[in-house]
Design a protein around this nucleic acid. Structure first.
Length: 415
RNA sequence: CGGGGCGUAAUAUAGUGGUAGUAUAUAUGCUUUGGGAGCAUACAGUCCGAGUUCGAUUCUCGGCGCCCCGACCA
């Protein structure tokens, strides 16, 4: 992409009411734009990050047999009345159409997925399986806050699994646990993210969350450094020891809940009569699990965790582009421009649309500042200086280290 | 939802019961070009409604919006 064609721009200052680090940096860098409290547009740069996060999640869930689908956000009242949540769920957005029919804007999809799979599920031979989607969720938060960390509209990956018995659920539950660990590793959050024992809310006694440590978090967790697991403050009174090693040495930290996994068991299969025939022909209720992970919140978390005084510092796996190619004086120096174009084409030929080419007619300082703000992992500069040496200058955004390499050697930065 | 704060240009800010100023951004011209370049010119603003007043951006009331703390939060 040529940066001169970007319809978005960076800005020196964030709107004064954006106090949270993630929103401030993401807005300044041109990744998101706020429409109203807790509701944001994802601009081309931010959308690329979001899609990269989604693709990592998608790849890992597909590996364990997850089947991707997409369910409606507009959901009939009747489904929600069946579980009693039409009246009890206070974050539910309700809309009425011309004929007076009432609908909910989906905050989650148990009420939809259960009758959906019921249309196909008959026998124990059909079990187990799991489905998932990436979808915009709507929750009428009493108070949206912290930029894209707690919005009223956000992107959620929600997965649901269906089993013949609890043992089978437990097996898959562990598979998803392990998969989440891999996902957060690939997202660059592995070292900061802890599986956390937490309350089950209205679903079950306990659940498990994945919590990323940062002062910007709204949760408090107690980490057992021996086992790399944590306990949420909400259950620390009843769960005083580490569930793995029974140790009592904890480190208190603030954290963001980036994922959670639940055993639903029959909580939703019961009200919808989701059953299957077992080997003896008897009807049994299907056992369920559900597994959430929010790509938009992950994006905010990464912005929050990986940033320095100059701006964002994206992990390479989720960066909007891998390379930021910057020409200095290219608008008036044909040699520079030609070399930049040559490099631009070469990288795109090798690894595709992974290079942002800053071909704008701006001062070096302005371009460098923008590049730092956007946080693209590798900055390549082409100027009269580099032409003289016949090398490319590559700067690592994270470490600040600068290296002069040939076009051929640039390939070591490809992955 | 309770408490608090704040609404002046695209952004950040100053100020005033009587003509609203600065910086950035934007446009044009000239000069610049390795860490947010310089000069000149131009464009651009008081959240909405009511009240008080000769006159309200300013004071009063109401609304709307945004942020923060708390409560809430699958």
């Amino acid at each position: 992409m040529r940066q001169s064609r970007f319809f978005t721009k960076t800005r020196k200052e964030a709107p004064k009411d954006e106090v949270s680090n993630n929103a401030s940096l993401l807005i300044r860098g041109g990744f998101i734009d706020k429409l109203q409290a807790g509701v944001y547009s994802y601009l081309p740069l931010g959308f690329r990050v979001l899609k990269k996060i989604e693709n990592i999640i998608r790849e890992e869930l597909n590996k364990v047999g997850g089947q991707e689908l997409l369910m409606p956000a507009l959901q009939p009242k009747e489904n929600w009345q069946k579980t009693g949540r039409w009246d009890s769920l206070d974050v539910l957005y309700k809309v009425t159409d011309l004929s007076g029919r009432e609908n909910a804007l989906g905050p989650t999809h148990e009420e939809i997925v259960v009758p959906l799979v019921g249309n196909f599920l008959n026998s124990y031979k059909d079990l187990p399986f799991s489905v998932y989607q990436f979808q915009t969720k709507f929750r009428m938060e009493a108070r949206a806050k912290s930029g894209i960390l707690r919005g009223r509209e956000f992107v959620m990956k929600d997965m649901y699994s269906f089993h013949a018995n609890e043992d089978d659920l437990k097996l898959f539950y562990q598979v998803v646990w392990d998969t989440y660990v891999k996902i957060f590793d690939r997202l660059g959050l592995g070292k900061l993210t802890y599986p956390t024992f937490a309350s089950g809310g209205s679903f079950s006694k306990y659940s498990h969350e994945f919590q990323t440590v940062t002062p910007a978090g709204e949760d408090t967790i107690y980490i057992c450094d021996d086992c790399k697991v944590a306990i949420n403050k909400e259950i620390i009174e009843e769960q005083k020891v580490c569930p793995k090693c029974s140790g009592q040495k904890f480190r208190e930290e603030k954290s963001i809940e980036v994922g959670n996994i639940f055993e639903l068991k029959t909580k939703f299969s019961a009200p919808f009569g989701l059953t299957y025939k077992d080997e003896s022909g008897n009807s049994k209720e299907v056992i369920m699990g559900c597994y959430g992970l929010g790509p938009s919140r992950v994006m905010g978390t990464i912005a929050e965790v990986f940033a320095d005084k100059n701006g964002l510092v994206w992990p390479a796996n989720v960066a909007p582009y891998r390379f930021h190619l910057i020409e200095l004086d290219g608008s008036s120096n044909d040699d520079v421009r030609n070399e930049a174009l040559k490099t631009y084409d070469a990288i795109r030929k090798d690894i595709g649309d992974e290079v942002l080419f800053d071909d704008r007619d701006l001062s070096a300082g302005a371009k460098f500042a923008d590049s730092d703000l956007m946080g693209i992992p590798y900055r390549i500069v082409i100027s009269k200086k580099t032409l003289d040496s016949k090398m490319l200058e590559v700067k690592d955004r994270k470490t600040g280290k600068i290296e002069m390499v040939s076009m051929e050697d640039l390939k070591k930065y490809y992955d």
